[in-house]
């Protein structure tokens, strides 16, 4: 079994190497040219393939590069971010391989590659048998980077490609760097907030609890009240805090699938039939505009005492 790992973000790529080690003792990491300086002292993979003439934001070249070396591997692991998810299906099909996404565990059973992934909007875990070669994306945060092997670095050349996609403009998204997936306390806000300014209630609550604020997809992506990096859900960030306080979010399945790993879930919503209460340990059926100020006041009193 030989495994190839590639990720546009090197930290994520090292998680892929760790995932690959579950099924192979020969995991090769492919590194794009613009990440070259970061491979100094890098540990984990058995070998690093450095391709200086491909950059990590060049999806077209990456498809051709990975496809061109795929015959040496039984499994190709990619990150479950948008770049990885765009690559996985195309590469799998080009090499006649199986494909799956968002893998949370993988193992070999009598030579059969078996993986698990969340499906049905978070209501089920699918156990899938993949034929080889297999191409898959790996869920973020599931595998801890290894620090054992110091790899040899070998340079490879990119195949020539005929470009079909012309990039006209690239705008970097503003990033605020909220460590949502690692936070111990998260306040998640939804459409129950009537105005952007009202979110200050959530920020105040998060501050006093020592946590951070995340949002549902509509609030981040449609209304743009918050940065997209804080959207929680199956297509955004998965959170796993000790305490998650969900305020004014109905609990659509896409959102709820992203909060499953939270230890304690508190839901505040004025609609007692909102599905979020099924996913909550403690539910408060109240107007958030009344309840949050009261809760903040009590917390302040407790702190002051």
């Amino acid at each position: 079994m030989r495994v190839l790992a590639y990720g546009d973000v090197l930290d994520l790529a090292l998680e892929l190497v760790a995932a690959g080690r579950e099924i192979s003792d020969n995991v090769v990491l492919l590194v794009a040219g613009d990440q070259e300086e970061k491979i100094q002292g890098l540990k984990g993979p058995n070998e690093v393939l450095l391709c200086k003439d491909v950059k990590s934001d060049d999806q077209e070249s990456l498809v051709e590069l990975i496809t061109s070396i795929a015959q040496d591997f039984d499994a190709i692991l990619l990150p479950n971010d948008r770049r990885g998810r765009e690559l996985v299906g195309v590469i799998a099909h080009k090499i006649g391989g199986s494909s799956t996404t968002d893998v949370s565990s993988l193992r070999l059973e009598n030579g059969v590659l078996v993986i698990e992934r969340i499906t049905l909007g978070g209501k089920a875990i699918a156990v899938e048998e993949l034929s080889l070669p297999a191409v898959m994306t790996i869920q973020k945060g599931r595998f801890k980077p290894l620090e054992d092997i110091e790899p040899e670095v070998r340079e490879i050349q990119a195949p020539k490609i005929e470009r079909r996609i012309e990039v006209l403009e690239k705008k970097e998204k503003p990033r605020v760097g909220v460590p949502l997936d690692k936070a111990e306390i998260v306040v998640a806000v939804g459409r129950g907030f009537k105005k952007k300014e009202d979110l200050k209630l959530a920020y105040e609550l998060a501050e006093i609890l020592g946590g951070v604020v995340g949002a549902t997809r509509p609030l981040a992506a449609d209304l743009k009240w918050m940065e997209e990096e804080v959207w929680i859900g199956i297509s955004g960030v998965r959170v796993a805090p000790k305490v998650l306080v969900v305020v004014g979010a109905s609990g659509q399945q896409q959102f709820s699938a992203g909060i499953m790993d939270s230890k304690i879930v508190v839901a505040v919503n004025n609609d007692s039939s909102a599905p979020i209460f099924e996913h909550a340990d403690y539910g408060v059926v109240m107007d958030l505009y009344q309840f949050l100020p009261a809760l903040i006041k009590k917390l302040k009193e407790a702190k002051g005492a």
Binding site: G97, S98, S99, T100, V114, I118, T119, L120, G122, K123, A124, I125, A126, V127, E128, E129, L130, S131, M260, V265, S272, F277, E278, H279, A280, D281, Y282, G283, V284, V285
Partner: peptide, 20 residues
């Protein structure tokens, strides 16, 4: 097909569902 779904499992998520 290149994939066989062996099983669908229900994830174990225990919630107390207490309404305050």
């Amino acid at each position: 097909p290149k994939i066989a779904i062996r099983e669908l499992k229900v994830p174990k998520v225990e919630r107390k569902n207490v309404i305050i």
